[in-house]
Design a protein around this nucleic acid. Sequence first.
DNA 1: ACACTAGTGGAACAACCTGTCCGTTTCGGC
DNA 2: GCCGAAACGGACAGGTTGTTCCACTAGTGT
Lengths: 233, 233
Amino acid sequence: MTTPLTSAPVPGTSGPDGSAPRPPEPARPPRDLRSDARDNRERILQVARTTFAAEGIGVSMREVARRAGVGPATLYRRFPTKEALVTEAFGEQMVRCTTIAEDGLADPDAWRGLRTVIEQVCVLHALDRGFTAAFVTAFPRAVDFTEERTRVLRSLAELVQRAKDSGDLRRDFVLDDLIMLIMANSGIRAASREAAAASSRRFAALAIQSISARPAVGPLPPAVRLPLMAAMH
Amino acid sequence: MTTPLTSAPVPGTSGPDGSAPRPPEPARPPRDLRSDARDNRERILQVARTTFAAEGIGVSMREVARRAGVGPATLYRRFPTKEALVTEAFGEQMVRCTTIAEDGLADPDAWRGLRTVIEQVCVLHALDRGFTAAFVTAFPRAVDFTEERTRVLRSLAELVQRAKDSGDLRRDFVLDDLIMLIMANSGIRAASREAAAASSRRFAALAIQSISARPAVGPLPPAVRLPLMAAMH
DNA sequence: ACACTAGTGGAACAACCTGTCCGTTTCGGC
DNA sequence: GCCGAAACGGACAGGTTGTTCCACTAGTGT
């Protein structure tokens, strides 16, 4: 099974031209669209962003098209698959995540930087109505954000290390804890975007409390009335 | 704002006659089924429980029927709707939740009782693969667990109050925080049931840390390697 | 043993989804 | 203006979902 070696070279791959099939898809951004097409594309993206953020990824492509005032075919011409649309729509949030991480890393006070990262990421995700969880569960293996992601993770790892070195972060903290807390945050559902953001703020404060190496009971952001129908079965 | 949850008067306790159209559905348990039908029903329930717990609520009715070795019609004759099946299937977990809450309340040490409740509920939900979140998001207004739920909430509210009185629980803690933490826990996804449970144990420990009135950095359950593809975009 | 009916499973239905085709409209350089 | 190509949208295909119909099967009281 590991030795297909002797077989004839796969036809087509030996050519000197070496034009790869098309996996990397280098030029994703719109090339030179006609003016109306460009407008439509932009409108679709905007609608997709707000709709997905507000109602989750379950919204159908048709519905996105309808709200953007175009036909389904137009939508599919610009974004050949739903995954592509979602990826593109949330690209902005992705770079925002990167920015947050690097801003945190830039803070000379690593512990404060880490705290800021946690709070901002939590709120960001809350405003996107658990986009993370939705996206991940919907497209488990999609995510060609890999490049951005590893960059972010590298930044966070260094931030965590520095916060430990300064003695502010518990020494048994690991990067997976940070991921866990962020995933947990995305499990919070509230009645409105504002409530979700407020809730996430409080959650972030509690999370920070829990990972501090020198915990001290300080004030918290206000509590939020949650739809009790939720978590208790 | 200082009166979070306790305000809701228990609905439906006013009318003496109370001949509601049919919302309570008094006789849900199987009445006098034929032997084979009874077997089938039991088998369906068992399959539904394990399947929903393991793979989430997204599993189709067809699939449940197939795994139970019956036709779709049989399934639907016993459980007229998917919601009914889910509700019935998770009834067991529901009473387990109740048990956990009442055991916690029975503990003379309220703080220890609360800690136990948090950990056990978190693990329970983890083993159900985020059943709570899935259920709630799938059937936002379903849940005729109201009776059980209010009972649980009442127990928890008292437990929280007692833990505050004993000076172990932060005084700005509210019941909504508990709900928030439980919802958050259900946002955690891991590679396996075991990993999820372990993760939830660690999460619960952190949560307890964060709401303690006298926090002290103690040991935590082991960290779990999470599918980093997840929460970080 | 027998009939009678509760119970059954497979096919079918309606609604929805993602993704495609094709005749029509509109842009944009001349 | 004009005309070719780009872009459009409504209808179509194929799949999956929850749910129902119906001819047949198999328990059960006699």
